[in-house]
Design a protein around this nucleic acid. Structure first.
Lengths: 172, 172
DNA sequence: GGGAAACATTTTAGGCTTAAAACAATTTGG
DNA sequence: CCAAATTGTTTTAAGCCTAAAATGTTTCCC
């Protein structure tokens, strides 16, 4: 426990629990700052992808998932990985098949399942974009020291675990 | 500088700059983790707002901005604060006026400007939602110690500054 | 075998979001 | 003063996104 109290109005921990509403302002500020950072970076990446490659961020993200899976993925896999709804993936895939970046085929062993892969074109274009994308990210985080990066990684891992537990508490 | 090298393949800093492509994998992983955390929390908040109050997250966010500005804000102000496009705000405001949560009037001193405020209903509903929302956030971050929270705040502030500088470098 | 449950995907309806163009009002600099 | 630039907002066109319902397929298990 830290020496300094973060709740200055609290004089006696016995009287706290029931009566005084807890002070959650710090967590709220933290959440807003987290959201700001993400929005800022995401907007920047989105803009650069559009300007340099005329591609949208969701398309890029989907292709990134597939680049890591040479044997293809099912739509459900993609949807879980990207943390978006099923219907969303259906539409995205439709457009990427249309533009020749993706190949979609029904699984031979389970006719419910659609397996999607990058086409040769899709893979080539993705690799080109990904190389540049990586330099943008490095530039956006340029002022963080290697130690900062490690520390942020650690704290965000803890945050993710905390949020997942909270979500599981509500939806068991 | 940390004692341990994070780029094991680099033997001589003289030869680095031009020839070997830099290793940005750590920053990329950090960005993905940041995005995962935000998406996770955002999705959770979105779902709870819908279930408990039948309200969308963007509506809630807009009302949160206005709650902090009793004298109202212009659409541009809101758009900058929320980091979304102008047209987006136009549509959101339209729906919130329609539902009786917002009041919109043209400024008397500048006929270009629209000033929006929460109505009595809008303020009352927002306050109710905000109180509960704060407990959700606290719960989502529950496993972070006060020290973790402070440290994250510090590192995210640094991240934000870094990203803003990078964005400014590109779009001066 | 056959019905119920589970699963994968698509569809639907509605809302959110963006970039860019269009429009309207004000400010500015000659 | 007045044309040009700037500012604030809306419109447009396209795409993204969700939750929930619908559809088709497979698995479970009695």
């Amino acid at each position: 426990m830290p020496a300094e109290s973060e709740r200055t109005e609290m004089l006696d921990s016995e009287t706290k629990a029931v009566e005084t509403p807890e002070d959650h302002a710090d967590e709220l500020r933290l959440w807003l700052r987290l959201l700001t950072c993400t929005t800022l970076i995401e907007g920047e990446v989105r803009g650069r992808l559009r300007q340099r490659f005329d591609v949208t961020l969701p398309r890029f993200d989907l292709m990134a998932q597939l680049d890591k899976a040479p044997d293809g993925m099912t739509l459900s896999d993609v949807s879980k990985r990207m943390m978006v709804s099923n219907g969303n993936v259906t539409g995205l895939v439709e457009r990427l098949v249309e533009s020749g970046h993706l190949d979609r085929r029904t699984s031979e062993t389970d006719r419910r399942v659609q397996v999607i892969r990058l086409t040769k074109l899709g893979r080539a274009e993705f690799r080109k974009m990904a190389a540049e994308h990586e330099t943008w990210i490095a530039d956006l985080f340029a002022e963080l020291s290697p130690k900062d990066v490690r520390e942020l990684m650690r704290l965000l891992a803890k945050t993710k675990a905390s949020a997942q537990k909270s979500a599981a508490r509500r939806r068991p």
